[in-house]
Structure formats: structure tokens, C-alpha cells
Amino acid sequence: MIKLENIERRYISDEVETTALLDVNLAVASGEFLAIMGPSGCGKSTLLNTLGTIDRPTSGQYWFGDTDLAAMGEKDLAKFRAAELGFVFQSFNLIDELTIQENVALGLAYRKDVAGNKAERVAAAMDTVGIAHRARHFPHQLSGGQQQRAAIARAIVGQPKLILADEPTGNLDTANGEQVMNILTALNDDGATIVMVTHSPSHADMAKRRIDMLDGRIVASAMRAI
């Protein structure tokens, strides 16, 4: 489904040039659950952001199906994100002024192609993550675990082909972390493709495949023994 070829990402500022990704080649098949691990600053998040098209590679190709995303304009990329991707962040990134239900519905707000009853889809997504009873609450009224589940609901409400999770359990305690991982696993079992950045080896173990990064390169790749 996804193929990255010779991806390179350099940040150039006035004085220094930083290479965040170097010679990254990666293929993610449909239905896969991929965990990306590595020490801080190794390029995990940059890789995830590149996959999510909110960061653009300096060179290389990014194939999503038959489309080269690296060559696509901003406007089309925005449309692409709205239709095909779901994001989950370590810091949840819910909008404070909107209720949980409205935050989840925001996942459909920029979709022009979704017809029919959006409310039902929002309700279904909230059900999936077990947050429906908190629909009318505001983010600050919820625990971290509940907020992250709401963020997952927002990510899946548009039924994206790919879910990108950037340390989804990083801000959560163990119990809440487990709960979130169980949801992601279940989503994957139902057919969702997931790419997740994590520091936690045990959570990485719950993915089907794991890659390790160091200094902007992929240094190891391993399939989970089933």
C-alpha cells in the first residue's frame, strides 16, 4: 500500500544543516501494524510526519498506492489527509473549545466526499473506543486515557486507510496505555493499517512488525513471531 523510496529529509537553518531522514526505504502493506522504535532524535516522528504528509521529504518518492505523494501540491495533500489518513498524537491535540463529540466529528469536517448521516458515524466511532458516555464533555473534563481514546475516535471516524500514531501511550499511565493499545490492536484486527511510533518495547511487541531507527536511518526490521 505504501512505499517510501530513498527518502531524505534535511532541515536547513541559518547555521546548521540537520539530516532527519537518510536513505529511508520502507514498504507498508495493507492491514499491517508497524511499530517504529529508536532513541530520541533518531527521526521516528519525522518519518511518521512524512507518512502523514504534514512534513515533506527533501528528496525521494512516497507512493501511496499508485500516487506519488511527494509530487503532490498542498491543496491535494490536504484532501488526501482528510480522506485517507487518521492521526493519533502523544499529546492528544483535541480542540479545547469543542466537546468530545464535536472533536470526533471534526474528523469528517473537511471531508467533502462523505455523504449520509455523519452523526451516526461519529457515534459509532465513539462507541468503538468506549467514549460515547463522555460525548458532551470538553477535553479538559476527561482523563488522559479518555482524551486519547477520543483522539483515536477522531482518527478512525473517517474510516482512513492508514492510521498514524505518534507515541499514543507516551502521556498515559500503564493501565490507560494498555487500553489504548488494545483499541489499536482491535482496529488492526478489523483491517486498519497502523503505523505507530513508540518508546515502549512491550507496546511495540503488540505490532505485527517493528523497525528500529538510528540517526535517520532504518537499521533493523523484524516481524513478530506469531
Binding site: A78, F87, A109, R111
Partner: peptide, 9 residues
């Protein structure tokens, strides 16, 4: 977040 969710500029 809105950008991530597909809002263009």
C-alpha cells in the same frame, strides 16, 4: 490539527 485533519490553507 485542522491541517492534519485535511484542512487546506
Amino acid at each position: 490539527m485542522r491541517k492534519v485533519l485535511g484542512a487546506d490553507r
